[in-house]
Computed example of a mutant assay.
Amino acid sequence: MSSAAVEEVSVPGTRRSTVWVLPLVVLVLLGAVWAYVGSLQLDSIETRSLAPGVVLTALWQHVQLVVVSTILTIAVGVPLGVLLTRPATRKVGGIVLAAANASQAVPSVGVLVVLALVFGVGFSMAVVALVLYALLPVLRNTMVGIRQVSPALIDAGRGMGMSSREVLYTIELPLAVPVMLAGIRVALILNVGVATLAAFTNAGGLGSIISAGISLDRMPVLIVGSALTMALALTVDWLAGLAERVLRPHGI
């Protein structure tokens, strides 16, 4: 087996030389921020705000927000998207998609504030807001992915005696996977960015470091919080890209 074939098996559709470019960018970004902060004479406020325990806690809270909200988004968006492509509910699909588009147009901070006013603050309400905001790409891509499957393939499956459920699981969903994975990837990146606003509802995350830098007028704190958010978004995008290539059905 040639070296090109080995690379194809390890990460389908991607050269090994380019797979590690994004992680290297993240490492360079983190290294530059570390060097910048290390070159400064931090005051007591900056030292407390950038203490390792504070930063790691905020990062862990941010990761939890992103992971939980994305799992719930997939759990809601994919089944709902499949349901809205069925003949009995196809007419409702346009209405639901329009409502999802409308929710995407609402500023994310507005969703967080409204939920905080109605239901209170904390981790759970922040997760609900993130799910509502990231639902559209998962829902839309699920519907688009299934609808773009050739009717001829569906008719061929039914001609072979397959039931509607068998056609869905053996033909429609496998062919829709690439489009669905792209929507999930977009939802992940959205959640990383929007989760910074969860700090305003007492849910923690890297947004707490950013808001502390703004409110305390401490540029090093603001830069560290922003850089960590960027690094997390790039890392999540890289991991999602690898997962998308691995999970993509062969031959599609």
Rank of each mutant, 00 (worst) to 15 (best):
A129Q: 05
L130I: 12
V131K: 13
L132A: 15
Y133E: 08
A134T: 14
A134R: 11
A134N: 11
L135D: 15
L136M: 13
L136Q: 14
P137Q: 09
P137Y: 14
L139I: 09
L139D: 14
L139M: 12
L139S: 13
L139K: 07
L139G: 15
R140D: 12
R140S: 14
R140T: 11
N141V: 08
N141S: 06
N141F: 06
T142Q: 02
M143R: 11
M143T: 10
V144K: 12
I146N: 15
I146S: 15
I146V: 14
I146A: 15
Q148W: 12
V149C: 13
S150Y: 08
S150A: 15
S150T: 10
P151S: 13
A152H: 09
A152M: 05
I154M: 12
D155S: 07
A156N: 01
A156G: 03
A156S: 08
G157T: 00
G157K: 02
G159H: 04
M160V: 01
M162T: 04
S163E: 06
S163G: 11
S163D: 00
R165K: 11
E166I: 01
E166Y: 01
V167I: 15
V167G: 12
V167H: 14
L168V: 05
T170K: 01
T170Q: 02
I171T: 05
E172N: 04
L173Q: 07
P174A: 06
L175R: 04
L175Y: 06
L175S: 09
A176N: 07
A176F: 07
A176L: 00
A176P: 07
P178Q: 08
P178F: 03
M180Q: 00
M180G: 08
L181T: 06
L181W: 02
A182F: 09
G183D: 02
R185G: 10
R185E: 08
A187C: 08
A187Q: 07
A187W: 07
L188K: 03
I189G: 10
L190R: 10
L190S: 14
N191K: 08
V192D: 04
V192W: 08
G193R: 02
G193F: 01
V194S: 09
V194A: 10
V194H: 12
A195M: 05
A195F: 06
T196F: 03
T196P: 05
T196E: 01
L197Q: 06
L197F: 02
L197W: 03
A199M: 03
A199R: 00
A199P: 13
F200S: 11
F200D: 09
T201R: 15
